[in-house]
């Protein structure tokens, strides 16, 4: 491979193009398989992308995208000069890091635990139960959480029953606890759903590996660390990359139900801030400018994370 590379670099552009065309022709059937995807992306993703231009325009509800006036970087200047926006960035990152720490690792552990259960109805039932919370909407779950975390709620009853606290407190009024509430409740809701991809990967592991390990005298834990985890490396890296690139993404539904006047300083995330400042006031330009900025940062994070994991894995997953 290396040799051909060198040979190619030595050639003129014309010959290179020829070589490309030749390779392309040889791969024609494969290329024809990609083509529909490319056409799809051009029509459904790239044709509407001119809509991003409203980030650089002064656009209101009654405008068409063409008719709105250009304002250059004005919207970005407004966003970046807004100290409340930066507070929401801090909160977003804080909550995202906790979610990375807890929400990212829990499904891995949980899927291994489920995988290690003996095949049978018990295993299937457990797995089914674990993903059910995914189907609760945040509106409903948020309402339940508000109830459970209130002074008369379940959590206070348990803590008081155990003698851990004397007087009940309303946990959602304590802004210091909000990041934990947000990330833990999110983990509760999504961890089981997150195991689906991992379990699918583990279903593809050749059972003879385990037999061999057993013959070598490896215990269950040893089998997990030396067989299961290494074989899940790619898919874990992939999830890791996507999670890292989503560090600036936040959960709007969750925030809107759990945020109140007292935890707002720690609860306001980028999405909820944009929602309240931009969308509810018809300021589409503002919202688009923030969205565009977040997208750019996300891509940078993605590329960086892909490079790093690519180095570790020797191959990039993208």
């Amino acid at each position: 491979m290396k040799k051909t590379e060198q040979k190619r670099t030595g050639n003129s552009i014309g010959e290179k193009a020829k070589l490309f065309a030749k390779d392309f022709r040889r791969q024609l059937p494969l290329q024809m398989m990609v083509l529909p995807g490319i056409i799809f992306m051009i029509i459904f993703c790239y044709m509407p992308i001119y809509g991003l231009s409203i980030a650089f325009k002064s656009y209101t509800v009654i405008d068409t995208i063409d008719s709105a006036d250009w304002v250059g970087w004005y919207n970005f200047k407004i966003v970046l000069g807004d100290k409340f926006f930066w507070q929401s960035v801090v909160n977003t990152l804080g909550i995202s890091f906790l979610k990375l720490l807890i929400g990212f690792t829990t499904p891995i552990l949980l899927s291994i635990m489920i995988y290690e259960l003996r095949d049978g109805p018990f295993k299937r039932v457990i797995q089914t139960i674990s993903y059910l919370p995914h189907f609760l909407s945040w509106i409903v779950l948020g309402g339940m959480l508000i109830n459970w975390l209130s002074t008369t709620g379940l959590l206070n009853q348990i803590l008081m029953g155990l003698g851990l606290v004397e007087n009940p407190t309303n946990f959602l009024l304590d802004s210091g606890k909000y990041w934990w509430i947000a990330s833990l409740s999110d983990t509760w809701k999504e961890a089981g759903w997150g195991t689906v991809l991992y379990l699918a990967t583990m279903a593809g592991i050749d059972p003879t590996y385990y037999e061999a390990a057993r013959i070598d005298g490896a215990g269950r834990l040893k089998q997990i660390t030396s067989i299961t985890l290494p074989l899940m490396r790619t898919i874990i890296s992939l999830n890791f990359i996507l999670t890292v690139s989503g560090l600036l993404k936040s959960n709007l539904d969750q925030t809107l139900v759990l945020m109140n006047s007292q935890n707002q300083a720690r609860a306001e995330v980028i999405d909820s801030y944009v929602y309240r400042m931009g969308l509810t006031q018809g300021d589409f330009s503002y919202a688009t400018a923030v969205g565009l900025g977040v997208s750019v940062v996300s891509v940078i994070l993605l590329v960086t994370a892909n490079k790093i994991t690519g180095k570790i894995n020797e191959e990039s997953v993208l």
């Binding site: 990609v34 995807g37 490319i38 992306m41 993703c45 790239y46 044709m47 509407p48 992308i49 001119y50 809509g51 991003l52 409203i54 995208i65 690139s245 589409f284 688009t288 969205g291 565009l292 997208s295 996300s298 891509v299 993605l302 993208l318």
Partner: peptide, 17 residues
């Protein structure tokens, strides 16, 4: 193709277009 695909994961023209 990869670059084209990755872009679609993060950028969208929005609701109106």
């Amino acid at each position: 193709y990869t670059v084209m695909g990755v872009i679609t994961m993060f950028f969208s023209g929005g609701m109106i277009p």
